[in-house]
Design a protein around this nucleic acid. Structure first.
Length: 667
RNA sequence: GCCGGCGUAGCUCAGUGGUAGAGCGAGGGUCUCAUAAUCCCUAGGCCGUGGGUUCGAUUCCCCCCGCCGGCACCA
């Protein structure tokens, strides 16, 4: 009878269905997938959940806008998310949707436990509410939402309150007793000071929202989205019957640093109130910054995973995400660095090593893993063995290190750095031993066998170690190595030098990470990114500048227009007469522009990059037959043409190198 | 405003109380099994500025400058 495997449960957040996954979401999910694969290779039975958060006013509105019922809208969104994770090779073991019955049951059950245990009470809540962010915000009446800048509404409603204040002490005890409950350290300190500052009770129901899980017997109360969403972690593994499946409590909640509070304060408090076991750890990772700035839809610098997966492969994106940044900290994202990493570490590194090793076995050993000299593999004089063993322990941990290997502590960048060093060692070993020279001398046959066995063994170990991060490529190498069994079932915690089987026939050799032309790869990815995001990019023109895609993106403009279409756009040379900032607008300048026939007032979204004074007298290109519109209450009658440069879309005004007459038409 | 972090070689970043490291890039060399790949050598950088503690600080403390984050529900 097979022994029951230990269980491991980890989660990503359930994602809000107001858009599609970008690399931020992908990051969390990739990390989760990597941990899942690693844990399975340690012999755990693992469940990883992700899912969709489908309630709240935003969804209500988005559905309305789309002209479909909410249920239909969220069904489509949920399917899109689920399918994308599948496509990217990071599917959930349990995909949980907050509109599922099993989830509603759990939420209602939890609330019932709160009531029974005396942790909820009815009350009134009055506050400024941002209907766009679906949240109460801490501003005075009449002020705009500090986050999104849009108007807030004063709302008073009857709510059920959760006695969060009762858990101040228990939470602090939890953090103290379990110092690694919140990771990394900096986030722990932040939460510590937040909780020490005192906790206010939390309203966990709403009457202002219709699209949510009803509070039984208390209609029209529905549950507040965060209470609803957090509970999904429990619903996914059995809800009220969680004990039967045996996966609760979660071993690991992976979250972005922005939602750490919900997971380390509210969520454990909810569970305490219900008398349920607490998750073991919450890990908050950082963000990928684009040009040192936050990625956001409004900036139009959102990077989507699919183009990267299609050009370089998911393994490349996974490797980049996990290698480039110390887990927990923010990192920089750029296509340039991505392709550099791909070529340097994957193509020239592990890919090339696999290729050269297998090719030599093919050519010099008849395509079979050679038989080393007896005793050679175990010999402490075996240089690769001597190098490899300590690194294996560093990466996967062992009893001596208290199991604190890099993977165990989620130090992926260190793990990958160590693996890269192993690759480099083997390359150096090959240059030193020169099997291609040994192959020419019949007397060196056994020596050749030893060298190539060692190289292949090294490759096998590298493949096993890298598998959690590079699942596709390592499976391919495993196949080419011709080893018995699947790579997934290899026990990474029992990995040691000398386990490679001799005599097995290797598979068909094929490059796993073909080297990419740097510029071409970047161009293709950028073109695909801007292609996908066209609906997002288009509204950028409404701020008074014409954004034209730069670089490679421009070359792939899919739809051609006729000359008549172009003729519809009347562009003329204009000269800026006055320029001033618009109060309350960061980006907008109010310009008056002489277009020959008249002087127009035009607003342009260039204030962050141009000083008003420097613009006066400057000649620019103006679209003069654009329908007028108001921006920030100021009439804009036309559009200034500018290039949109870089991922942040910095505007650069179009200009002439020769003198031109004001009013001249462009065609 | 309150709290916290960061500022180290051209770039991206590690790191340590005893006067500094990696990868990439660049330059030179080498090999030919390999994906014009590998391997070897080469970076001499006031470890942001100024002060303090110490036998000794890049590493500990304080001030200042610059950048960033949390408090303010986009991974």
């Amino acid at each position: 009878m097979a022994q029951a495997k230990p269980k491991f449960y980890l989660t990503t957040p359930i994602y809000y269905t107001n858009g599609l996954p970008h690399i931020g979401h992908t990051y969390t999910t990739v990390v989760a997938d990597t941990v899942r694969r690693y844990k399975r290779m340690q012999g755990y039975e693992v469940v990883m959940t992700t899912g969709t958060d489908e309630h709240g006013v935003n969804v209500e509105r988005a559905a309305q806008k789309a002209g479909v019922p909410e249920s239909e809208f969220v069904a489509q969104m949920a399917e899109a998310w689920r399918a994308l994770w599948e496509e990217l090779g990071v599917p959930a073991d349990e995909f949980i949707r907050t509109t599922e019955v099993r989830h509603a049951r759990t939420v209602q059950w939890l609330f019932k436990l709160f009531r029974e245990n005396g942790f909820v009470y009815p009350g009134h809540y009055t506050g400024q509410y941002c209907i766009y962010d679906n949240a109460y915000v801490d501003v005075k009446p009449g002020e705009n939402c500090p986050d999104c800048g849009r108007p807030t509404e004063t709302v008073t409603e009857e709510n059920y309150f959760f006695k969060l204040s009762a858990f101040e002490k228990p939470l602090l005890d939890l953090y103290k007793k379990n110092p690694t409950f919140i990771q990394p350290e900096t986030r722990r300190n932040e939460i510590l000071s937040f909780v020490e500052g005192g906790l206010r009770d939390l309203s966990i129901t709403r009457t202002s929202i219709r699209w949510g899980i009803p509070v039984p017997g208390e209609e029209p109360h529905v549950f507040y989205v965060w209470f609803d969403a957090l509970t999904a972690y429990l619903s996914a593994v059995g809800g009220p019957e969680y004990e039967r499946r045996g996966f609760w409590p979660a071993d690991l909640h992976l979250v972005g640093k922005d939602i750490i509070r919900f997971h380390t304060v509210y969520w454990p408090a909810f569970l305490m109130a219900a008398g349920l076991p607490l998750p073991k750890q919450v890990w908050a990772h950082g963000w990928f910054l684009i040009d040192a700035g936050k990625m956001s839809k409004s900036k139009g610098n959102v990077v989507l995973p699919r183009p990267i997966a299609q050009v370089l492969g998911m393994d490349a994106l996974r490797y980049y995400m996990l290698r480039e940044t110390v887990f927990g900290q923010d990192g920089n994202f750029s296509f340039d660095a991505l392709v550099t990493r791909y070529n340097a570490d994957l193509a020239n590194g592990i890919g090339n090593l696999s290729n050269r090793t297998l090719t030599m076995i093919q050519q010099y050993c008849g395509g079979r893993i050679p038989q080393p000299t007896p005793g050679h593999t175990e010999s402490s004089a075996n240089t690769l063995r001597t190098m490899f063993r300590p690194t294996i322990w560093m990466v996967v941990g062992n009893a001596e290190s208290g199991d604190k290997g890099h993977y165990n502590t989620l130090q992926f960048s260190s793990a990958l750095q160590d693996i890269a060093r192993l690759v480099s060692h083997v390359d150096a070993y090959l240059v030193q031993e020169k099997p291609w020279v040994l192959a020419k001398d019949e007397a060196q046959k056994q020596r050749l066998a030893d060298v190539l066995y060692d190289s292949a063994e090294a490759l096998r170990i590298i493949t096993v170690l890298a598998h959690p991060v590079l699942p596709e490529a390592t499976k391919e190498i495993w196949k080419q190595l011709g080893q018995p069994g699947t790579l997934e079932e290899q026990r990474i915690d029992q990995l040691d030098w000398g386990q490679l089987k001799s005599g097995t026939r290797i598979g068909t050799i094929q490059a796993v990470f073909p080297r990419m032309d740097h510029q071409e790869a970047i161009g293709r990815m950028e073109a695909m990114e801007s292609e996908t995001q066209k609906p997002v990019a288009a509204p950028a023109a409404s701020d008074g500048t014409v954004a034209s895609p730069s670089g490679a993106a421009a070359q792939t403009a899919p739809e051609k227009i006729a000359i008549e279409d172009f003729a519809k756009v009347e562009m003329r040379v204009g000269q800026i007469k006055t320029a001033e900032r618009i109060v309350g607008a960061d980006k907008l300048l109010k310009l008056t522009v002489d277009v020959g026939s008249e002087v127009r007032q035009i607003c342009a979204g260039i204030a962050q990059f141009y000083e008003p004074e420097s613009l006066v007298g400057r000649k620019v290109v103006v679209v003069v037959n654009l329908a007028p519109r108001k921006l920030r209450g100021v009439e804009s009658n036309g559009m200034i043409v500018a290039a949109s440069v870089g991922p942040e879309g910095r505007p650069v005004l179009a200009a002439f190198t020769e003198d031109v007459e004001v009013g001249a038409r462009l065609k």
